[in-house]
């Protein structure tokens, strides 16, 4: 396996996160959530360290990271676009909205545009079902989004 380079402070933070979950292998998903919250994404190095600390196989960690769409292995864009795929949003057409973002930005889910500006990810229910379908960009929340609104939303950030 490849050698891993990671700043000592980052390693320490990860070790702390794992410790806060008692280094339990069964807490893997929670540890990954916390790590992603802290680092913004989950690069291979981070997964290796988590695997070591929780004493689980790296392949398993990678399996979990790739199974859930809310985990990402690439850094988020300057404006991270998140589309809710919870039940309410889904039935009200979130998928069409997602497709439109993907088409206009020419980037798949979980990845970032070449200029580093936008990234697309999917979320579980964000608890604003009344506004479904919901899209968030950074701290801002957009409700009742339709595919037709996508171009205008993107324009807001392109100056």
């Amino acid at each position: 396996m490849a050698k891993i380079k990671l700043a000592k402070s980052k390693v320490d933070t990860l070790v702390e996160i794992c410790k806060s979950f008692n280094n339990e292998g069964s807490e893997l998903i929670n540890v990954l959530h916390k790590a992603q919250e802290t680092f913004g994404y989950l690069p291979a190095e981070v997964q290796e360290i988590i695997a070591r600390e929780l004493n689980v196989a790296v392949a398993h960690v990678y399996g979990v990271v790739t199974f859930y769409s809310f985990f990402s292995m690439v850094p988020k864009g300057e404006f991270p676009i998140s589309i809710c795929m919870g039940t309410a949003c889904y039935v009200r057409g979130a998928e069409k909205v997602l497709e439109e973002f993907k088409r206009q930005l020419d980037v798949p889910v979980g990845e970032t545009t070449e200029d580093g500006k936008f990234s697309i990810s999917c979320l579980r229910c964000v608890g604003a079902c009344g506004l479904a379908p919901v899209v968030t960009i950074g701290e801002r929340v957009y409700g009742r989004v339709a595919a037709g609104d996508v171009a205008d939303i993107i324009k807001e950030y392109q100056s």
Binding site: A44, Q47, A57, Y62, F67
Partner: peptide
């Protein structure tokens, strides 16, 4: 632990880490 199912749906496959 060399192998794990990765990705989901149509894309899923059994593979080593990364």
């Amino acid at each position: 632990g060399a192998l794990s199912a990765v990705n989901r749906g149509f894309e899923s496959v059994v593979a080593p880490a990364f």
